[in-house]
Design a protein around this nucleic acid. Sequence first.
DNA 1: TTCAAAACCTAGTAAACCGATAGGATATAA
DNA 2: TTATATCCTATCGGTTTACTAGGTTTTGAA
Lengths: 139, 139
Amino acid sequence: MLSKKTKYGIKAMAYIARKKDRKPVQASEISESENISQKFLESILLELRKSMFLGSKKGKGGGYYLIKEPADIKMTAVIRVLEGPIAMVPCVSLNYYEKCDDCPDEKTCSVHKLMIQVRDASLEVLGDNTLQDIATFDQ
Amino acid sequence: MLSKKTKYGIKAMAYIARKKDRKPVQASEISESENISQKFLESILLELRKSMFLGSKKGKGGGYYLIKEPADIKMTAVIRVLEGPIAMVPCVSLNYYEKCDDCPDEKTCSVHKLMIQVRDASLEVLGDNTLQDIATFDQ
DNA sequence: TTCAAAACCTAGTAAACCGATAGGATATAA
DNA sequence: TTATATCCTATCGGTTTACTAGGTTTTGAA
């Protein structure tokens, strides 16, 4: 299951991407428009800024803005930062690999075998989609 | 992330499927061979029996056995019973659908759009794989 | 120079979930 | 009758989740 944090984070980035001008967007505006608790959203936007997806400006007229073009932001990257591994099992994760305690041999593990396939399928979808793709309504 | 429950459940079913004869397999044997806490495994096997994947026999020489052929058990079914929805967001789930509180319109939701694709990709993999496929070592 | 608006930071917290464990009751084959 | 196995209920410590509270700091504009 996707956490609310990740869900809200994606929605927020999509909201910012949808704005034609590149002026900073305030957390309060996103919070209202997307029905997200403002304080919670603030912490998420902060994290996205620290992960170099967003820039920010303090004070009046400040807010958050995209650093890169929406078409250059892969959803794999966003999800990895907010949610963590894309794989459903650590022993199959490319970026967060961890050996299972119980499993003596990954090569003969039935779960491993299956989850590799699921990972690859998810990776393909999430790697193909950019923020641009999901932010736009048309098509 | 896949829960240990699901992981253990799949491993246990694969273990049972791998046995050539169809004699009941004891929880203790699976627990030892697959390094799973016996009590925890018991509860999982029980659940799998109640969900009509396994049959059981009590007393000496008892244990658990498959009701259907491994080739007829799709991994989608197993995962749905043990883990719940395959979709990463309830609003995209086929079997466990739930509307999001925050989302006024699914058709214009960027997360929805993306997660539909992920769901379909996962569904294809898990629907193609049967217990037979993942239990066998060869290939 | 003051004020208000915004991001930024730290801490806490209630509730749910997870991965077990405990302690038996019940059924069955030998 | 006994050992063996499933079956059942309850509990529990730890972690995570989804926030909330209560501020500090920076900045633009009046």
